[in-house]
Design a binder for these strands. Sequence first.
RNA 1: CGGGGAGUGGCUCAGCCUGGUAGAGCACUUGGUUCGGGACCAAGGGGUCGCAGGUUCAAAUCCUGUCUCCCCGACCA
Length: 626
Amino acid sequence: MDRPTLGLSCAALARSDEGQGRPGASHRPLPHVPLPPTARARYNPRTMRPVRLSQAFVPTLKEAPADAQVASHRLLVRAGFIRQLGAGIYDYLPLAKRTLTKVEAIVRDEMDGIGGQEFYLPALHPAEIWKESGRWEVMGDNMFRLKDRKGGDYALGMTHEEIFTAIARDELRSYRQLPQVWYQIQSKFRDEPRPKSGLLRVRQFTMKDAYSFDVDRAGLDRAYEDQRKAYERIFTRAGLEFVAVQAHSGAMGGSESSEFMVRTEAGEDLVAACPRCRYAANTETATSRLPPEPDGPGLPAPERFATPGVLTIEALEQKPYAVPARRQLKTLVYVADEKPVVAVVRGDHELNEAKLQTATGAQVIRPAHPEEIPPLMGARAGSLGAVRFGKAPVLVDPALADRRDMVTGANEDGFHLRGVDVKRDVLSQGNARTADLRTVRAGEGCPRCDGTLDVFKALEVGHIFKLGTKYSESMHATVLDADGKAVPLVMGSYGIGVERIMAAAVELHHDENGIVWPMSIAPYHATVLTLGPEPELWGAAEKIVDALAEAGVEVLWDDREERAGVKFKDADLVGIPIRIAVGKKGLAEGKVEWKIRGTKEVELVPVADVARKAAEQVRAATARAR
RNA sequence: CGGGGAGUGGCUCAGCCUGGUAGAGCACUUGGUUCGGGACCAAGGGGUCGCAGGUUCAAAUCCUGUCUCCCCGACCA
């Protein structure tokens, strides 16, 4: 942490902005004062120079761009942090770069803290390495692909399991070299089907991706736990409130994963969480406790009955039939890796495709096209059922396992079956089994305690995976264990979206006037506003700015020839935590106005105390959470 | 990919239906008056109307194609 940068930083400080002074501003080189150790340790010294807003590139906007929907997008554009280059492609302007650099610094500090070693790998990948793991096909259209001048296939990296695994395979030989924790902070490219919401879903972004290599599961468990704790510290230090939830592994594969979620309406995931216990899971994997459904004795065998024109659950609930949705079986046909599969859930339940994918073990699933259904089922959608059905695997949601006297399609247009006993008529078939398929809903029982689940929208800012040997096996990355036997490396992978942390912080911390940055990732710690044209104001402001910089406070001086209102509005918009207003009334008493963004209180502080007070606040707010 | 919407000075938009000289507010430049919550007055600069083709004496406006962006549904940090 303690880098020998003192000489450099003082040289930077001593460089004056001569010739740019306002009327009355007397400019001279700053005295050679050492920085306080905390400030020196935590930040890049070049950021210690005070910056003059009149010379800085901070293009704020009075009006929000028409296409910005979510708060973070609107405010980051308006406050001069970002501009859009294309769909899901953004320019990061100087303010954003400062914030992103701070986020990265926190991430680095915590990764290094658990023994991580930083790499920097290419974003341009030869196709061969992706073909080796099998993901050249799996990634499909989500991967940007290109050809070189010789016609060779390349891809822009979406993630780096393959590349890191290749290094491990080529260089790691013995269990004695393990564990290894490797990471990098680098651009990722994903051809998202639909980029949206500003920075929340983009096609190029910066990811901290880390990978652990161990000889055995126990080692992986330790590495995973280290990462989980590091992630909690990272998000806490970045000023985010978050929940760690059980998650779906998706194309990453592996046995277990946790997502780090920030609760916000701008998020696109749904999290089910129990307020009573610690249970929290993405609805892609969440389960719930349902009240038992009392069923009658039913019929000795399913009975066919005519239902002309009835094609939906709702229609069957109507008068002549009056079958409640919870007594119906909903039968859906999917195609999993090009093979048909039949999924059955309760009529009033919703199939979860992520769960279906997990249950089938398929790489890609999709609903069957309407024309694919009749040849397989013998009927069109609306009359489907899985009773005595032998042509494809049948997956039945456990909520149905003990049900009797149910109604389902007869696989004949215009007919349904009643008196269906799921165990007797569906699960008895060799091709049928139960699998968790349904999406949980708010208000259902917690699977771990007798609490009630809450379901809310959330934004994923990090995701950690226990990969196991998926990549090391496909890419033959082995080491010799203590018995001299070749064993595949046991891997984990751990990702954080850097820009998403910035955007999530804005979603969480803003008001009607603008952003309210957490001190730890604010582009500057303090901003000094000079209110009025009087030369004595400029002289005093400059002294304050210099004193702040010398105390290790990153300060942005609004020295523009603008009216007070403009400066206040911009200060609120940009959201720098400490606002120091230098006006002639206060100055007459030797005081300036001190205000913390996001609070109402305005305090008068003697000029002589400003730098010390600010430095203390910065230190307190950016202290490492241990 | 399916469905919906939008492309007009840097930004937010009007004009298009009913073809005929391209507009407003903000921003910018200069001068002046102001100066504690997005000032005022005056004078200016700035637009291939997304692109291509077509219809017409004449196209921002009508027609065809195309590109781009945004929003809603299937993916992910």
